[in-house]
Each structure stands twice: as C-alpha cells, then as structure tokens.
Design a protein around this nucleic acid. Sequence first.
DNA 1: CCATATCTTTACGTTGACGTAAATGTAAAC
DNA 2: GTTTACATTTACGTCAACGTAAAGATATGG
Lengths: 136, 136
Amino acid sequence: MDSHRTYSIRQLSKEFDVTARALRFYEDKGLIHPERKGQTRLYSSRDRARLQLILRGKRLGFSLIEIQEILDLYTPNDHGVAQMRATLGKYRRQIETLKRQREDIDAAIHDMQDGCIWLEGEITKMEAENLKPGNA
Amino acid sequence: MDSHRTYSIRQLSKEFDVTARALRFYEDKGLIHPERKGQTRLYSSRDRARLQLILRGKRLGFSLIEIQEILDLYTPNDHGVAQMRATLGKYRRQIETLKRQREDIDAAIHDMQDGCIWLEGEITKMEAENLKPGNA
DNA sequence: CCATATCTTTACGTTGACGTAAATGTAAAC
DNA sequence: GTTTACATTTACGTCAACGTAAAGATATGG
C-alpha cells in the first residue's frame, strides 16, 4: 500500500509547484490538516489528495472558501439519513455549477476554433495573393 | 439591424448583473472602450459582446489581464501574414488551455457523480435498516 | 563543534478587483 | 425652478491570497 506514505512540506510543494507558504496558508484556512511530528508537518496521502482537489479548484477559478465547501462534500459524513440527503443535494448543485462552467468552456472553445478556421482561410488567401503575377 | 443600438451604463450593468463601478473599472484597464456622448458613456453592441466575453472569462477563473489577452485575440488583426500566423498560434494555445480546463471539469464532475451514486446507495441501505423488525 | 539545510511562527507588505464616499454635472418630471 | 434620477471623476478603503522578511528550533554532514 502506498497509502501510508508521508510527505514533507517541501516534497509536496515541489511536486505540485506551490510554495510552502501556500500550504501553510491553506492549513490556516482549514483546508488541510496535516499531522505534526513534534513541530514539523507530516502530510498523509489523504492530505495530498485534498491538495490536488484544492489546486484543481483553483484552476477552475473557485475561491478558497468555495473550495472549502467542495472539500466538505468529500469528507465522510457521520451518517444520519437527513444529513446524507442534504449532502446529496449539495453534490447535485455542485454538479450543476460545474456543468454550467463546462458550457462556458465549450462555447469559448468553439469561438476560438471558428476563429482559427477563419484565420487559416485569410492566410491562405493572402499567400495566394503573394504568388499572383505582378507581385515580383 | 440590432447592431446599432447603444446601451447606458445602467442598462448593461443590470442586464449582466455587474455594478457600474465594475464597467468603469474594466474600461480603466482597457478591456472596453465605449464612446462618449459628451461626458456619459455609450456602449455599442460590440462593447456588449466584449462584456459578455469578459464575464465568461471571469466565470472560468481568468484574471482581467488574461481576459485582456483573450480579447486581443478577438480584435481584428490589421493584416500582415506574419501577424496573422502569430495570432493563429495564440488561438491554438488558448484552445489547449481551455481543453485542459475542460478535463479538470470533467474529472470533477465524474468524482461528484460517483459520490452521488455512493451516497444514494448508503441512503437506501439506511432506509432498509430502519424498516427491519426490532426498530420500532 | 559548527555550518548548512529545512522546518517553524509572527507579522507586515503586496496585488488584483473592485466597493464606497464625496463632490459635481445634466436632463427629464413635476 | 427645483427635485429626482442618473451620470461623471477622484480618491481612499477592503478583502482574498498569498509574498517576504525576521528570528528561532532541529537534525545532519564534515
């Protein structure tokens, strides 16, 4: 099992290309809770996974507070049917948010691809121009 | 043609649910360039379109500077084959960025959907528990 | 034993993206 | 004609998300 490994703050910060300061900051904000061996932090692979989620959230433009809420969705819910139903609702709303974002992305991609096609056309036109007689 | 309409700053801010302050701020940063009738701003439908792009960029987590660069891709390029090739390159890199972002989103959606399925299962289990004899 | 490296906390600094307040201009409405 | 509703500029305030500097604990190598 690789799941019992631990990581130092440097290892994680290098692996994911974030500063140690950022990791401590996320901890300060309650997004991660590494153990302590004496004074120094020991990150578990579960912490590592949470960090991955944090960074993915950032790439998607979520604030740390929003990311916090998303992380809460991932933390095991101390049963109780009502609680679980509530959590399920949050999951579904989050999925809707993400799907809307996906539509934004698809729209942007399509726009850009259309732009590419148009540009390619213009370029070929201009190249043809430059080969016409009289342009020596 | 609807394309010659103009909009006041309030109209735009209401339609897109942003403050007038934000619109002036975007102008300050060079993202939009509305005309002036005397002192007051008159937004064209082209300005409106740019605003849409700005807000989409924000929803996708881009900074105003990044959005500025994206907008530059949309502004007609005063021909010159070299320039157009450069622009084409930028388009393509931007598309790659967006596609990577889409992969992040897809991953997030899948995670959440798995979570939903698991949760639904747990809930049905617990409901079954509560109906067993001896739980009166 | 001492230097070097890596960890820690505390605390002030910075940048981006606006918010908000103050003072003023203009145009329609009563 | 003055109130009402909207526009303007200038300028300081704010919040998030860290950066950065200072000062110290810990361990490892030479």
